[in-house]
Design a binder for these strands. Structure first.
Lengths: 232, 232
DNA sequence: GCCGAGATTGCAGATCCTGCATTTTTGCGT
DNA sequence: ACGCAAAAATGCAGGATCTGCAATCTCGGC
């Protein structure tokens, strides 16, 4: 009987905080080194030395060298799920998701500094970008569960907790979901991704909020043919 | 001035066909070994030996060991693009994409055998599944170009050719696209993926065609709240 | 202070991946 | 049929990635 708070509470013992600090240090070191010398030319030796730990320790935190670049916004998606769950019932599932994401993104924009570096690094290496996207897909199923809960269909579900790990577990979860929640979650995440990518490339032409809003309007309208866009 | 046919024609010299045969042999060997012993327990030595080539040769075909598992449907996406481009103009971009994908999938269903194995292997290792999805994302931009061409907006564009490789090139392509084509491509691919995943898990309950159709109906309707789905 | 759990570390070793030189195969003109 | 040049395959050396194991260290509670 897994309690929710068990995973929600950061459990801020001195021990735990140091662990998170080390993890953050590794990520930061990796990103800064990659931004400077290129992703390919960054060894785990260099990363761990910059972060001030042993190379062996690096692999206690990440399963592979690349994973340090891929792991982004872990608790971010948890907040989005919570917001979707708490959204007023006058809203559509899609609207709730849109608003939750917009809020989260606006908060991320504040941090800027490291996040911008990270984005650049990912943009420069398509392979890692792919995996980063894939990482988000894992969250997609959990998000789908939340949406299912919102609209009343679906399984009992453990409201906000994170991946319980096991493969059989994930399989069972997928089986318990209808098509619709799954579709909304996946399409919503995708729209968000496209908006970000599209904006990254023309930051100067328009605001992100505008792009984001436009994308979800297209979605809510059923993606009709546009009224002949004469671009530029 | 890149010609289209240059890349479209398989250029079936004996040389080229043997190369594709070797590549196919490597993929098949990898998939079969992975299905039997688990993905983690398959070394490139084992793969290349089973395929009857040197381990070094393996890396002449794939950049990494994992890539042999994620490379699927290379020419499949090319056919989809062609179909989208050739679809009658009475259809919406989304409809054209839907029909093109439906056709392609029905043809893939014929092959079954190895494809099923491959699907199983990917399902058992989330990491590789992520990367496989990511690989499809690369095609997404090219697909977006085709859609842009269809609706008349966008850049001159090289109609059907494949990735011209360079990173700067990809960057330029992204800049030349509006939001809408990008969104339709991404969302369409996503819907297709969700449909496949959803069906893989309940093959016995319904036909794939039905799931696929339902997904795109949701999309075209703007993803409204479902009329209370009492699942099962 | 002492002890148990958990974290870090060093180390050996398997595997992955790359650059380079060499050999074999293929396509083509003579 | 023969030879040549381009392309592919191969062997090998070496660096990087990743894992298991045992020793050490650190935190939190007794």
């Amino acid at each position: 009987m897994q309690s929710v708070d068990e995973k929600v509470a950061p459990e801020d013992s001195w021990r735990e905080r140091k662990k998170q600090a080390t993890r953050a240090a590794l990520v930061e070191a990796a990103v800064r080194l990659a931004a400077e010398h290129g992703v390919e030319n960054v060894t785990v030796d260099a990363i761990s030395e910059t972060a001030g730990v042993s190379p062996r320790t690096f692999f206690n935190y990440f399963d592979s060298r690349d994973e340090v670049f891929v792991m982004v916004g872990a608790e971010s998606s948890a907040r989005v799920r919570r917001a979707v769950l708490d959204a007023p019932h006058e809203h559509t599932a899609l609207e709730a998701l849109r608003d939750a994401m917009a809020l989260e993104l606006s908060e991320i924009e504040q941090q800027q500094e490291l996040w911008q570096l990270h984005a650049d690094v990912l943009r420069r290496s398509p392979d890692l970008l792919s995996r980063s996207i894939g990482a988000h897909m894992a969250d997609e199923i959990v998000l789908a569960e939340v949406i299912a809960a919102r609209i009343g269909a679906g399984s009992p579900l453990f409201s906000g907790d994170r991946r319980t790990g096991s493969e059989a577990e994930a399989e069972r979860r997928r089986r318990a979901l209808g098509l619709y929640p799954r579709l909304v979650a996946a399409v919503g995440v995708t729209a968000c991704r496209v908006a970000v990518e599209h904006w990254c490339v023309r930051q100067d032409e328009t605001t992100f909020t505008e792009v984001f809003r436009e994308a979800f309007e297209h979605l809510a309208a059923g993606l009709p043919e546009p009224p002949a866009t004469p671009r530029r």
